[in-house]
Each structure stands twice: as structure tokens, then as C-alpha cells.
Nucleic acid binder design. Structure first.
Length: 485
RNA sequence: GGCCCUGUCGUCUAGCGGUUUAGGACGUCGCCUUCUCAGGGCGAAGACCGGGGGUUCGAAUCCCCCCAGGGUCACCA
């Protein structure tokens, strides 16, 4: 049988980075097995539906470089792929379950339900459950209620005393007792299905063979298994994945610690290959010491057996930063330049380089490339290339305390540089002549060059001084020295 | 609270009864390269494997109990 996996986002908010991880695993598993990857939109909650969320989710999935064989925008023979467009299907199967004796109509009002729950809590029940009140309704009564258009839901009729065994691909055998499971709602009174009905029906109808999802779904898996069984369908294989948490505690990813939405990471200047690489290690490893993988390599290596059995995996933002820097460093200058421009265009980021040639910008980029960890580091790192620095007085006096020595040094530099022929304004020549000069003046390299760096660039930390001066050009360097004097 | 899952350096993990003085990566620290910051190179510190019992000649690896963390208990997904 052909492997088919799916990712089924709900348009109730923006796509989370954790969703990308889960999607990646589903995607890689399908690709690795020459199968198909499907996207389905689970928009059955009309209360939480957010306008435009579907498009934003699909856009960011595409931005991360994933494609899908079937789903919204591309279609497919098992559509529609929006659950809201499949309502009659769910109704049909809900009614079929009723006929088969695995579900029943329930006319209980929300008021009764909340009273029931309150009472059970009052009595100190360890867990509150529906009391199967409507299970004993006669066929006549049901027909009458239906005829009178009384609002109803269809509930799953969970067997009293059975053990449900799940053979999870990652966790192994997990057992559940049906007495712990309540007769949950399958079809809501607004005619929409609840998740538990919709996933089962859709996964079956769409031929999904493997379901890779977060562990938070583990407790509801027996409900799904029961529906498969009732309908006499073969269930898919399940693999429950660890969830993500912040480093340190055991809290979920939170905006307090940085980005959490997939698009936010892109916006901050993280690279897609770095993000994908980072996220693939969140719950999986190749079994050896390798850590750097392209998507293609990952697809080749990926296997369910190597996903760890653990409930939480820390999302180490420090390591992500390192990895992104690593990817930036290993890109060609040309590719990095293109990536930087594409990024600034896509997210409307002003790089402050207007009026400068592409060649010049690229030379600046080359110098700061090893120092960038995210694309948005560029402007900070290169500010002095595109505008005169604001020189802090105190800083400029830090390395040479004596004002007369400082003035002397700067005027000597000015003289020296004035005399250098434009054609000889090379980094090596600048280096050589500058060293000769300070030797004559009896100054140490550090005090002299740091002072020059600060008055020309405004900062203590920059790429090697003569590389920068060379790139800035003779005229600009002389202007800056002069304006300081 | 009921049910379920998990538990190795600060973090992510390797390990699946002996080849382990528990390996790697991020982070931290030191040295080298040097005009600074990065980067690179080299090196160091860092877990007695949650705790306690077993099984075994031998356990991080198997079993039991406890503890801790997490997930889940909706007409949300």
C-alpha cells in the first residue's frame, strides 16, 4: 500500500514553529517512502475560526519549502480538503454509527450538561462524564424529538468494559480502559463534526496510512480506534511525537522568550534551511554525530524508529542562532546577498543602503558575513559603511589618554593617507604603511588602531580595520578623520 | 484528582547487559591566530545515568516501588 501522510492545520491562529516540525516529519516520511503528502484544513470550529488564517498557514508552509500532493490550492481526488465543505459526509457516518449501535442521539441541553458536571464535581468524582441519559430514549421518543426539530448531538457509545490496545510506532503498546472514556459528542448540534469524528472519517476516506502527531493526541486515540472498529475500518499507524518546550523549565514555547510563529522566525531573518535543519533535530537524530542535514538528506535518513520517546523537547534558541549563523557562513556571498535582498523585500525591511552600488553592498556584506547570525543583524553590523558614525567622545579617548598624542596620531594618519595614491588604496598597503607609521611614533598597534577605528567607524568591534578602510575608500576615510579633528 | 506518557552533562541528545575512565553538539571557560569583534584551530570543566530495591558474574541499559515533570479529561482542535 502506498504511504500517505497528512498535516491538518486548524485555521484558529497562525502557524506555530512546532507545527512545522510535525509537518516536516509527515512530509519526510511520505517522501522517503515514495508516498504522498496531503494537507487538509480542519475548520470545524466556527467559534474560533479566524478569517484569512487558511491562506496565511498555506503561505508559510510554502515559504518553508514544502509542497503537498493533495489539498487546498492543488486539489486531488479525495477532496474537498476543507472539512467545512464535507459536512454531509460526517453526518452520513454519524448516522451510520447510530444505526450500527455505536452512537446515539442526545437531546440534553447545555444547561443540563453543566449542571451534571457541577454535581459530579460536587460529589468529588475523579472524572466527570456524561451520564448516558439519552441512551435509554426509545425510538419513538427520538423520532418525535427529531420531528419537532429539537436540537441534538450524536454521541459515541463507548463500550462499558473493554481494553483498547494501541500499538504506537514510537511509544510501543499503550493500553486504555473504555470505562475511563466518556460518551463524547461526535456530531455537534450545528451539524459540524467534532475533531474525533472528522479525523477518523477523513483519514480513512483519504487513505491516510500513517498519522504522525503530537503526544497531546495520545489520550484521545482510543476514541478514534473505537470508531474505526465500529465502522469495520483498518486504522492507520500512529506515531505520537514529543511536544516543544522552552529551555530551562517545562513551559510551552512562549512569546516571552522569542518568536513562536513560523513566519516570525522568517521575519527575524532566520534562513529556511537552517530552521528546517534545526527543527528536524527536535525529537529525532540520525544515531551518529551528524547534525547538519539538508531537507533531502533528512528525507533519506528519517525513520520512525529514531524518534525519541519523550514528552517534551526543548527548543534551544541559542542553538538555533548558532545554526543559523553556521548556514549564513557556509553560503556563497552571491547567495547570501540574494537572500538578504529577498528577505528585505518580503518583509519590508529597510537595509539603509540606498544610493550605494550592488558591488559596494556586497563588499560590506562579505566583511560582516562571519559575524551575522540572522539576516537582521546586517544593518547593525554595517551602519558605518552607509553613513558617518556618531563618535562617542569618551570612547575615542579610551585607548590614548593624552590629547596631544592622539591629535598627533590622527594628523599623521591623515597626512599618510592623503599621500597614498588611490590606485594603491589596498588593504595590505594600508596595513603596511600604517604599521610603519605607528612604529615611528612609538605607539602600540592596539592603542593606535583602536583609536583610528573608533573615530572612523564609531565602534570598538568591527571587521579588520584595514579591510574596512579599504572598502570605505580613501575619500570617505579622509573625510571622517578630518571631521573628527 | 482519574487515565496515559516520559526521566543520561546547564540544554539537545548517543547509549538498546560487558568494547564506557558514559560519546557528540550548543552554551561556558582557557590557549593559538590578531588592531577589536566574529570566524577558525586546539583544549578544559561539566552527567556517578531522578531515588530506592531487586534480577545477573556484570545494569544507564531488564523487573518492581517511589518521586518528579508533562499530556489529557469541552457541542476546541
Amino acid at each position: 500500500m502506498k504511504v500517505r501522510t497528512r498535516m491538518a492545520p486548524s485555521p484558529t491562529g497562525d502557524y506555530h514553529i512546532g507545527h512545522i516540525r510535525t509537518l516536516l516529519y509527515n512530509y519526510a516520511f511520505a517522501r522517503k517512502n515514495k508516498g504522498e503528502f496531503i494537507i487538509r484544513i480542519e475548520d470545524t470550529d466556527r467559534e474560533r475560526f479566524i478569517d484569512g488564517a487558511i491562506d496565511r498557514i498555506l503561505d508559510v508552509i510554502s515559504d518553508f519549502g514544502f509542497d503537498w500532493d493533495e489539498g487546498p490550492r492543488v486539489g486531488g481526488k479525495f477532496g474537498p480538503y476543507l472539512q467545512s465543505e464535507r459536512l454531509p459526509i460526517y453526518k452520513e457516518y454519524a448516522e451510520k454509527l447510530v444505526k450500527l449501535g455505536h452512537a446515539y442521539y442526545c437531546f440534553c441541553t447545555k444547561e443540563r450538561l453543566s449542571e451534571l458536571k457541577a454535581e459530579q464535581e460536587r460529589k468529588g468524582y475523579p472524572v466527570t462524564k456524561y451520564d448516558k441519559h439519552c441512551l435509554s430514549l426509545t425510538d419513538e421518543k427520538i423520532a418525535e424529538n427529531l420531528k419537532n426539530n429539537l436540537p441534538y448531538v450524536i454521541r459515541q457509545k463507548v463500550p462499558e468494559d473493554r481494553e483498547i490496545k494501541l500499538k504506537d510506532e514510537i511509544l510501543g503498546e499503550v493500553k486504555f480502559q473504555t470505562k475511563d472514556i466518556e460518551d463524547g459528542v461526535l456530531l455537534k448540534s450545528d451539524g459540524f463534526p467534532v475533531y474525533h469524528l472528522a479525523v477518523v472519517v477523513d483519514d480513512y476516506l483519504m487513505g491516510i496510512t500513517h498519522v504522525l502527531r503530537g503526544v497531546d493526541w495520545l489520550p484521545s486515540t482510543p476514541k478514534h480506534l473505537l470508531i474505526y472498529e465500529a465502522l469495520n475500518w483498518e486504522p492507520p499507524k500512529y506515531a505520537h511525537l514529543p511536544n516543544l518546550k522552552e529551555v530551562g523549565g517545562s513551559q510551552k514555547l512562549s512569546k516571552r522568550f522569542g518568536a513562536v510563529f513560523a513566519h516570525s522566525f522568517l521575519e527575524e531573518g532566520y534562513l529556511v534551511p537552517a530552521l528546517v535543519n534545526f527543527v528536524m533535530l527536535l525529537g529525532w537524530n540520525p544515531g551518529d554525530e551528524r547534525e547538519v542535514f539538508s531537507l533531502q538528506e533528512f528525507i533519506k535518513e528519517f525513520s520512525l524508529e529514531r524518534i525519541h520517546k519523550t514528552d517534551l523537547v526543548a527548543f534551544d534558541r541559542e542553538k538555533l542562532l548558532w545554526m543559523n549563523g553556521y548556514y549564513i557562513r557556509s553560503m556563497s556571498l552571491e547567495a547570501l546577498y540574494d537572500a538578504l535582498l529577498d528577505w528585505s523585500k518580503k518583509f519590508n525591511v529597510n537595509l539603509d543602503v540606498e544610493g550605494y552600488s550592488k558591488e559596494y553592498v556586497k563588499k560590506c556584506l562579505e566583511l560582516v558575513k562571519d559575524r551575522m547570525r540572522k539576516l537582521n543583524d546586517f544593518t547593525d553590523l554595517t551602519s558605518y559603511f552607509f553613513a558617518p558614525p556618531i563618535v562617542n567622545r569618551e570612547l575615542s579617548e579610551r585607548y590614548i589618554k593624552d590629547p596631544s598624542v592622539r591629535d598627533k596620531l590622527l594628523s599623521e594618519f591623515y597626512k599618510l593617507y592623503t599621500d597614498i595614491d588611490s590606485g594603491k588604496w589596498g588593504k595590505d598597503n594600508l596595513d603596511k604603511l600604517s604599521h610603519e607609521l605607528i612604529l615611528d611614533l612609538g605607539l602600540k598597534p592596539k592603542e593606535a588602531f583602536m583609536t583610528l577605528r573608533i573615530i572612523c567607524l564609531g565602534k570598538e568591534a568591527t571587521p579588520p580595520l584595514f579591510d574596512v578602510l579599504h572598502t570605505l575608500g580613501k575619500r570617505t576615510v579622509l573625510e571622517r578623520i578630518k571631521s573628527f579633528i
